[in-house]
Nucleic acid binder design. Structure first.
Lengths: 258, 258
DNA sequence: GCATGTGAAACCGTTCACAGCG
DNA sequence: CGCTGTGAACGGTTTCACATGC
């Protein structure tokens, strides 16, 4: 019944089913399904559109928005094409309209209710992270087990006891849960969130969470990120050993033939 | 000279060149280049191997390790095959040997020197995050600009002023930099790290960093992660509108035919 | 017999190049 | 003429299925 998903952050497209367009009984306008990889970029485009808007730009070309986002223009155009035609040929995209459209597609016009479990080191930082509240996702429920924390107020939110997760989440219609607990209890906490009707979980604990198929899990694993970087450092310095690469410095280019 | 990389976290394999095996002048054992996607999983396998070791297991089968990691066994075997043959047919993998091998490949046998810039909300949490020090990456330099923080000691490390980044990083041979500053100064800080010889950067600020080609950047963007989750929530609830999906509830499975 | 290791096929996402349109 | 939108080519990752070897 429960399968391990974890379409992790540092991950490519894992085994997760990917996003698909729904059935279309009425024969309405039906854009093709949006790839997961595209969705993450849409969020980035949206942020940059905000900056263009602040600067008073009425339109942006795919080239401008693309370089600002660190992608090439072809990819950007293809990404935007998934949500229909909101550009004008020969001109570019109308900033306001595109912003609005992206917000709709990303589900930002419906207010999302976010719960945070684990208000320790990392959790406390997440609670105060401006990147959420500022035009985004205000956290409106927190949980922990520590007597020092339960009952205290952080950022205007009272920290509840983990045992109340299910009730509170269901009552407030929480849709997104963030797990910032120590690894050993992460799965238990996850189960409670799921029991409370939470459909999406952002997992900071270094464990692979088991969830029902309907629940989406994304993982942010800081240690893995660092290890990937360490790997690249090691590569550059020539790991040598029994692993090939006997010469000192190796630059990024392909060398090994046949 | 400087190009935008950002092979971001939530990203699939971006434009980054990918990892390649070096030339092999001597004709030694030469494993094929390791795909980026594989590298992130190797880190996960390594953690789980630690757990198997604690439980006293001498060997693991690909099936065991795979289900524990949330991947299928074929993928795991292919991943491990990139580092040579460390399994025994009919038996499985020898836990200790595999651990050691993974540590070597990931560059964990060389101590990495990590610097953290920005000891505010998030940075402070990262400084105390056990996931780094515990069998991993002890942070050994911190920087900020706030007079309240500069000169103070966190986790046994004295916080230096941002203006000293270049000198200190070069002196201590810092290889990995973590940017946990507000967005507006992230690029400046990044430039300082690069000037100090840092080759790999883990970026928590919501900006696309511009770096020279030799520098590897990975991005952890919490807001983007939440937005991707929000998208999935919206999908499930049927965004409707002009976007297809007129029916109320849509489960994860593919529906749209031809 | 059983589990690894691996070519080959299927799949997905990115890049290219150009047709289409304001 | 310029820029969007997109079919087609490309490259990388996952999956399959089986040969290989203990």
């Amino acid at each position: 019944m429960t399968r391990a998903s974890e379409s992790g952050a540092g991950d490519a497209a894992s085994g997760s089913p990917g996003v698909v367009a729904a059935a279309d009984p009425a024969g309405v306008r039906l854009p093709r399904p949006i790839p997961d990889a595209t969705v993450s970029r849409l969020a980035v485009y949206l942020r940059l559109l905000g900056q263009f808007a602040e600067q008073g730009a009425a339109t942006v070309s795919s080239e401008e928005l693309a370089t600002a986002s660190g992608v090439n223009s072809a990819k950007l155009r293809k990404d935007l094409s998934y949500l229909g035609s909101y550009g004008t040929r020969g001109v570019g995209y109308e900033v306001g309209a595109l912003q609005h459209q992206l917000e709709r597609v990303l589900g930002l016009d419906h207010r999302q209710s976010v719960a945070l479990v684990g208000v320790g080191n990392l959790g406390h930082a997440l609670a105060g992270y401006a990147g959420f509240g500022g035009r985004g996702f205000p956290i409106d429920a927190m949980f922990d087990v520590s007597p020092d924390l339960v009952g205290s107020t952080i950022n205007g939110i009272e920290v509840g006891h983990v045992r109340d997760i299910e009730t509170v989440c269901r009552a407030r219609g929480v849709t997104i849960g963030m797990v910032a607990t120590p690894a050993p209890v992460a799965q238990d906490v996850c189960d409670l969130l799921v029991a409370g009707g939470v459909e999406s979980i952002l997992n900071f604990a270094p464990v692979v969470l088991q969830v029902p198929d309907e629940v989406e899990v994304r993982k942010v694993d800081l240690a893995v990120e660092l290890q990937v970087l360490a790997f690249h450092v090691a590569r550059r310095h020539g790991v040598a050993g029994t692993l090939g690469s006997t010469n000192g410095t190796v630059n990024g280019s392909v060398v090994s033939p046949s």
